[in-house]
Amino acid sequence: MEVLLEATIKNMNKYGDNEEVQIRALEILDRASQISPATANLVLKLDGSRHILSRIEGGNIPSKKTGVLSLQVLNKLCASKEALHHLANQSNDRFLY
């Protein structure tokens, strides 16, 4: 699973301007976030959440669908305080404060 998520996130970064790739990748992260806490942690660890946060912070959300999916993933990842701390570390101050 790790290698699959890693490849998914790598392609999210690589095809940052391709909305279809972004949507499909976000769907995978969304599903991975709810399979188990362990897979959700993988999304955090592999910087899937960092990619999402940086796009939100950069205002780089090409459509409402990608925006909503991004928020859905983040919301599912915020299942514990530890996860929340990790997310906070992955985002910049301007977004959080």
Binding site: E2, L4, S36, L84
Partner: peptide, 30 residues
């Protein structure tokens, strides 16, 4: 799909410690 790799449970203890203020702000995010 889950079988592809053994899941490495992410150790949150490795996560950087947060200041109380920053942690509180995180709730703003959620």
């Amino acid at each position: 799909y889950v079988k592809v790799n053994n899941l490495d449970f992410f150790d949150f203890s490795n996560a950087l410690s947060l200041s109380p203020h920053r942690a509180e702000s995180s709730w703003v995010l959620i």
